[in-house]
Design a protein around this nucleic acid. Sequence first.
DNA 1: GATCGAAGAATTGTTGAACAATTGGCAAAA
DNA 2: TTTTGCCAATTGTTCAACAATTCTTCGATC
Lengths: 202, 202
Amino acid sequence: MHGDNDAGQGSAGRGAAARLRIAVRSVADRVAAELRLQLAEGILLPGARLTESTIAEELGVSRNTVREAFAELASERLVVRHPNRGVFVASLVAGDIHDVYTVRRAIEVSAIRGGGTREAVAAVRAAVEEGKLAAAADDEEGLGSANQHFHGAIVALAGSPRLNAIMSQVLAEMRLFFHKATVDAHFYRGYLDDNEETHDPL
Amino acid sequence: MHGDNDAGQGSAGRGAAARLRIAVRSVADRVAAELRLQLAEGILLPGARLTESTIAEELGVSRNTVREAFAELASERLVVRHPNRGVFVASLVAGDIHDVYTVRRAIEVSAIRGGGTREAVAAVRAAVEEGKLAAAADDEEGLGSANQHFHGAIVALAGSPRLNAIMSQVLAEMRLFFHKATVDAHFYRGYLDDNEETHDPL
DNA sequence: GATCGAAGAATTGTTGAACAATTGGCAAAA
DNA sequence: TTTTGCCAATTGTTCAACAATTCTTCGATC
């Protein structure tokens, strides 16, 4: 009874699947993506609790699927699991932030050393321009976006899939941090100088 | 009926749980740990297929739990998921290996720059000694182990939890690679020199 | 009134069964 | 031989159940 399918529908279905193959991943992945988005947009604030059943209901998926999505996000450090208590949006303390910057610096310094293809270098310059424009227009949002592109481009210089992956996690953690309504400006300033030093060699 | 628990057993159970709290994690985590072990020991060879139901039966857990373990391992790149086809032990091609070394180098160079506490430096020296002893005794196994300790200690110099985490993943990937029965010795040699250069500054 | 502890409620961790969707192999047809 | 279509096996996902654990609330005791 369950191996029962008619040829007509089969071929039609295959066509649709092929068209979407690249875009459509598993449901768990899409749930993770949705949550990642809400995290980045500050809809879910650090420290907030994510209840399995609630999210399962909201997104119309099963608790089990939500669980898989949580595992994904936890491995990215965007949420933390407290055994038997639940998962919470990660809230970064000063030490964590310092640590994130340590990682970013390690990756970027190494990537810059490596040189990079002409296109990769061009991408960096483009991101810098993007940032200047946003800064001139006082566009907070755009500046943040340009910042992400800049750091992504820097790491892409190395042409290393793993470094890229690590960097995108780092950037995700930083987004989490920056959306925490008010950031201690002084604390942040210190790191800005650090950034400048990092990419000066270019 | 399901909220039914007697006080006596409750207190006894709590004692046992408290004793094991640190060691015993979730079942999914233990499954992942077991698989990680089999991966490191070369029981599961690169390219091998891991069937959910088989492993579930072997370890006496549910398929769903195995699934969670797979997610964990996949995020560590120890296995790869082919959608709708299954998970396979990751098999690293030349490019991957190069990439792993790129990451390792980036992390280690940065960690060495940072200096490190006296204890951390001592740990590095200890690992070097361990390696020398193993080499003198022609102890392949011990040499591999010493190598792991060495690189772990190097990164620990930075005192960064995130760098440590990244490094342990890198080491796990390397273990996967080294257990692939026969490794092209020449290819490997090239990287050995690289290692030497990396830690020479010490 | 404050503290402590014990039911009770809520939530997580795990299981087992079910079924749709997809894949790969194999046999029959062209 | 190549292609087509079916079958078997496996994955992806859901649902329902229950045990274990944590959180809450409510008295009882001091």
